[in-house]
Design a protein around this nucleic acid. Structure first.
Lengths: 209, 209
DNA sequence: TAGATTGTTAATCGATTAACAATC
DNA sequence: TAGATTGTTAATCGATTAACAATC
């Protein structure tokens, strides 16, 4: 892998490639050229080749790419075989939804535990994920390997909680609150899903058809 | 409003401006310069002025921008006062979570109804939103104004459902399934939230620290 | 071998940043 | 008025696309 200066735009396209290749694999397609892949994904063949060239040489002149091989390679690049572990903070409606429906395993993650303040859920399990009290958080983090914390908490506590967790040594956050959480440490990676921002862009585009 | 050729990058920054201005307003700040706003948001003053200039002239030399006024203006641009109506298809865990926690009103939307196939929920209400049977969908759409459909369904049905809805005259989709839904009609606006893509980019960045 | 398609270098396009005259 | 800050034009930077020699 080369990956000296991979732009954010390239990184954000990788999961799309990965997804498309999964589908091609499921359809039983064995090989594909950058041209055909581009047509299916509505991007140029040049861009695909340029993107992939950041990470190595996966194709073969005159043949194209082996679907299964390229799928595996992009999986490697994305780290789906790194067996990351995550915990969830906030086992409310959204937390429930993720625990029930989201396939963490397919992205190479294992959700080991969730934490909440509500006595009603503490001590129970949701889809085999045990729910602990927030009081047990520090102890848990100290005795387990935690790569990412999923933040499904009210936005009012998001920033302070993040700081607390960074102190505990966490440096990966998957943020579902509608606030920008920040951290001075550049090693800490924060990926946010801002529902409201997404709906507002849709609102804009509907208004400007 | 000018908005001849507003790039996607600009559109995606608008909700962030809107959010930041909300916060400044809540903090009681009356005016702000592009420079200070840029510092708070970690972008350049130039970019802010350039972005805003796509839509009009909202500032004043020597003074900057009035926080409340700019907030309102960006709200207009985003269409938060257009009173859009949406319906949700799929009242499972994720649908529940959105109905309970997401503030549609703050984005200028009203969630009028949800549809599902499960007899257990049909006829009930979730947070004042009535749940109807999928059989009632066509009739509902014909007799009500629906600007956006929220897709919180299994991915297997997403594409065919979208096509059915486009035929019914819907041209706004907020897609939560992890598939790329497509529509040949360029007037149809589709905004997707791909949870898996988001987590995979986080995985990549953790692996490449 | 001839055709197809890669990886990469060069050209283009677009987006971000800097500079500055206008002006509150 | 003097200082501050805008909106906009020009310069820079980076990302996308095109071209093509290399080669399967």
């Amino acid at each position: 892998m080369k990956k000296e200066n991979v732009s954010d735009a390239v990184i954000r396209r990788l999961p799309r490639y990965y997804r498309q290749l999964s589908e091609l694999k499921a359809r039983g397609q064995v090989r594909i050229s950058s041209h055909s892949l581009g047509q299916e994904m509505n991007i140029t063949a040049s861009q695909i080749r340029q993107d992939l060239s950041c990470f190595g040489e996966f194709g073969q002149q005159g043949y194209g790419y082996n679907v299964e091989e390229l799928h595996t390679e992009i999986g490697h690049i994305l780290g789906v075989d790194n067996h990351h572990h995550l915990i969830m903070i906030g086992a409310g409606n959204l937390g429930h939804a993720l625990m029930h429906n989201f396939h963490f395993q397919e992205a190479g993650f294992t959700l080991d535990a969730a934490f909440d303040v509500a006595p009603a859920v503490i001590g129970t399990q949701i889809n085999n994920v045990p729910i602990f009290s927030m009081d047990e958080l520090d102890g848990y983090v100290h005795s387990h390997s935690v790569d990412v914390v999923v933040l499904t908490v009210p936005q009012s506590v998001a920033q302070s909680l993040t700081e607390r967790l960074v102190h505990l040594g966490i440096h990966g956050f998957w943020n579902f609150t509608n606030v920008e959480i920040t951290c001075p440490n550049p090693d800490v990676r924060i990926e946010s899903i801002h529902f409201a921002d997404s709906l507002l862009t849709l609102s804009y585009r509907i208004a400007n058809r």
